[in-house]
Structure formats: structure tokens, C-alpha cells
Design a protein around this nucleic acid. Structure first.
Lengths: 250, 250
DNA sequence: AGTTATTGGCGTCGAATAAACACCAACCTG
DNA sequence: CAGGTTGGTGTTTATTCGACGCCAATAACT
């Protein structure tokens, strides 16, 4: 952060990196409480101006690493936001990325430019007021994630290396905002042979322990090369229930 | 175009608008032969620097209108390209859009900054050398289009207002690079009730004339609001043939 | 030790969807 | 009027999807 910010303004570009994690049955997003104007005190998405000699992707990885210390994670560009008045101090367009991290993998490293860094559930974050046009950005990135997760097995990026089928199902239910049928889900997932049965059991749970699995990345790349579609669909019955509940809630 | 370009350079952003059309059974893309350095004489995607007080989408529409005179067309942001060295004169990132136009709707208006504007088949354009990183950009946008066309009925944007089912099928075969079964295609398309039978016939064709249809936009928006999936799938038999042909071609 | 509470793990059948497939009709041309 | 070209249509089979319920394994409690 040794760059003189006056050089950037008038016309500059930044990256925002929407960092998703999954914990405790909920999809979470990493937010920073702004310590300076504008929007001081509001929560914002992590981001930074792009250095003059820095590729966009590199900048997005840098933002991530400064916050979490993580380097090799799933990261994807989503959309660029460039409304003329989106930044009160000048013309700043921002390229939005999302990344998927395993919350268990690290402890937060609050970076120098932020006072507070916290995980928020996506639900609540979407409803609260964020700095700049970050509600819009978060919304777009969340939609991109829910779309992507139907097509590619990126969900595994959010789980610890070893997980149970029920955890996986909860993750998908949370991402797709849908109820899934247990038996059909297991059948489908296992029939893809993307999971390796580790022959290990959960420990320390107050009920029958479940088998642990891991995601087989090599296998996935093999299948992908041969044209392979990944899709998970909602149970229609549960969908009806959900829609009914939504109607009542209005 | 009265902006002093020196103000932009060092760090600037542009939009590139990949304009797709469909004609003569082929997907086409509008290219401009560069009349000035860098890359003088090479074909390039239409684009321009974004004005300081202009939204990104507005800039993309402007580029389109300067070339074609068209205003209300389908336009979608795809990806932002920002490698440090992608522009030889300075740091210029570019936001890529694609738009879909009906070639029959207009005659080209070569704009002041271009010497030559021409439709090229996407196939050939991808294989030829384009200016800057435009091969990369075109490739990304073409992939985005083939993906989008599976999910939303955007293909109609490329056809004249009145079209036959065979024309529609050819369009989809061209976009999906797949062979489709005639009867299944017609069954599926018609069952969506997105087409209106105009009770008119083709004229001037040297064979039995086909019925003309138009796309029913209102109907589509109705269906879309009630959750509606649009998908067209390849005939498996034809897929096998195609894959075999690809293997032989290597 | 036995009971209770909680989650894990498994297979079948009916319904819906997708895919393969071939012939006659209509029009133009020469 | 014969030949060439494209238009238009239904049925059957294979595959996929989706609904559905019960016993097993473990820990906690008494």
C-alpha cells in the first residue's frame, strides 16, 4: 500500500473479492468494516485498487492472501461494475471476483487497511446495507455461485478435505436454497464416482458416525476432458413445500 | 471522439463489443481493420475507450450504434481482460461485451475511426490472427454465447422477425456445433409455445415453402417469471458421428 | 444393562423425458 | 409430367427422475 492514491483517482480500477465460506450449515461471506471515509463504519467487500503493473487476477489473489494468508484457492471473475457515480471520490470501476475457501484452513489476518474483518451469513449480508454498490456486487456474485455450483463441482472447495455425505448435502441445500431427497442425492453423487470412500468414520458425534469421503480431483479432470455434466436437482415435493412456505411468509 | 487520448493512457479502460450476426447458415462476427498503429492492418474487435462520464454499458451501446446505427439490441457483459501487457501503449484493461443483431436490419455505417468493417465467420476469425488479445476475447465471448443460448432463448435475436423452423434449427446447430434431430427439435420448440405461427409461407424458394413463425416475447417473459428452463440437446447419434469425424480430422 | 434419541445408510417402482427412426406432401424447374 | 428439393409429421423404446420407509449404529441417560 505504498502507492499514492492521488495517482489512481480521476480514473482507476479496483478488484473486489467476494470470499465465500461454509460453516455451521450456512454460507458465509467475509466482510470488512470500513475504518475510513467514505462509508466509514459500514461493512464492505474486501478489495483494493489494482497496481499499475499487476494483472487483474493477481490483484484478486493478493486481496485474498492479505486477508486470509491463503494462496491456492478457487477464484473466478464474475462481473465488472462501472457506473459513473459508484464511487464518491472519482471514477473507479471494479472487477468483482468470488473465491471459495475452507474456513477451517486458516485464521483471519486482519490487514492493515481494515479495522475489522468478520464472517457474515450471506442471507444477512444481503439484507444489510453495505458500502458503495456492494449489495449489488454481492448479489451478483452469490447468483453466479449458485449458478456455477449446478454445473461444476465447485462446492467441494468449501468443505474440509474429509466430509460426510450429509455435510455435502447440507452444503448443496444451502447453496441451491432447495430441499434435496437424501437417497436420490447420495445415489447421484456416488454414481459420478467423484468421491473417494476413505474407510474412516466421524469421531466425537453423539450418534451413529458417518463415513468420511474426499473429493477426487484427478478423477474429475479425467471426466471433464471427456465431456461430463454435473448437475444436482431439487426434489419436486420439497420444492412445493418450500414455495408454499414462501407464499405464507409474505 | 474529441477526447484527448493522452489523458486516458497510463491507465485507462475500454469496452470491446463483440457483435454477432447470423447469415447464410453461419455465425458471423463484425470486425474492423485497424487503420492505425498498433496492429495496423490487422482485424480487430470493435471497441473504444470509455468516456470519463459514461457508464460501461452505455459505452458498449455507443460502440454498437456507431458501427451499425442500431440501438435496441441484446447486449451482455462477458469478461474483463486486464493483463498488464495486453496493450502496447500503456495499461488498458477492457471490458468485453457481446451483442446479437439481425444482419438484415441494417447496413453498416463505417465509423470515422475505422477504415474497413466486415462480417467474418466466427470460425475463420478464431483461426486468423487478430489485433491485441482479441483472439482470446473472441473465444471467450463465443463460448459465453454458446453457453447462454442453451439456457435462454437468445438465439431469436439473431434471426429476422419472421423465420422458418428449419432456419431456427440451422441457427442452433451452428451455435451449439451439434447436429439436431429434426422431429425432436420441432416437437420441443413448439411445445414451449414461444413461437407464434404467422399463417404465412415463405416466398421465392425453389421448393416447398415453409411456414413462418415469430418469437413471442411477451409469452417468454410470462413463462420466465414462473420459473422456466430452456434447453436444447444434441442428438446422441449425430454427436457420435461428429466426434468420430473430429477424431479422423486430427 | 436396557431404554431412548439421533443420524446413517440403503433399493424399488412408476412417471416423465429423451432419443431413434421413415415416409409422403408441396412446390419449383426444366 | 418427371425429377429434385425441402417441409412436415407420430410412435416406440430407452433412460432418467423422483417419490417413498425402515432398520442399523452409536452415545447419552436412567
Amino acid at each position: 500500500m505504498k502507492h499514492n492514491e492521488n495517482n489512481f483517482f480521476k480514473s482507476a480500477f479496483s478488484v473486489d473479492n467476494i470470499i465465500f465460506g461454509f460453516d455451521d450449515g450456512d454460507l458465509k461471506v467475509l466482510l470488512i468494516k470500513r475504518g475510513a471515509s467514505p462509508f466509514k463504519g459500514l461493512w464492505a467487500l474486501p478489495g483494493d485498487l489494482v497496481y499499475p503493473n499487476e494483472d487483474l487476477d493477481t490483484a484478486a489473489y493478493r486481496v485474498l492472501e492479505e486477508l486470509t494468508g491463503l494462496k491456492k484457492v478457487y477464484l473466478e471473475q464474475v462481473h465488472t461494475f462501472g457506473a459513473v457515480d459508484r464511487h464518491p471520490l472519482g471514477r473507479v470501476i471494479t472487477i468483482a471476483y468470488f473465491s471459495l475457501v475452507k474456513i477451517s484452513d486458516f485464521t483471519l489476518m486482519p490487514s492493515s487497511f481494515a479495522q475489522n474483518v468478520e464472517w457474515h451469513t450471506v442471507d444477512k449480508a444481503l439484507k444489510s446495507q453495505l458500502a458503495f454498490d456492494h449489495n449489488d456486487i454481492l448479489n451478483t456474485c452469490f447468483n453466479a455461485l449458485t449458478h456455477r455450483v449446478r454445473i461444476r463441482p465447485v462446492g467441494f472447495e468449501l468443505l474440509p478435505p474429509k466430509f460426510t455425505l450429509t455435510e455435502l448435502q447440507h452444503l448443496y441445500e444451502s447453496l441451491l436454497q432447495a430441499g434435496l431427497d437424501k437417497r436420490n442425492f447420495r445415489k447421484k453423487i456416488l454414481s459420478m464416482s467423484l468421491l473417494v470412500d476413505l474407510d474412516e468414520l466421524q469421531e466425537g458425534v453423539p450418534h451413529r458416525p458417518a463415513k468420511l469421503y474426499k473429493f477426487d480431483k484427478e478423477r474429475y479432470h479425467q471426466l471433464e476432458a471427456h465431456g461430463f455434466s454435473f448437475e444436482v436437482k431439487e426434489s419436486k415435493k420439497k420444492e412445493k413445500k418450500r414455495r408454499l412456505a414462501e407464499l405464507i411468509a409474505q
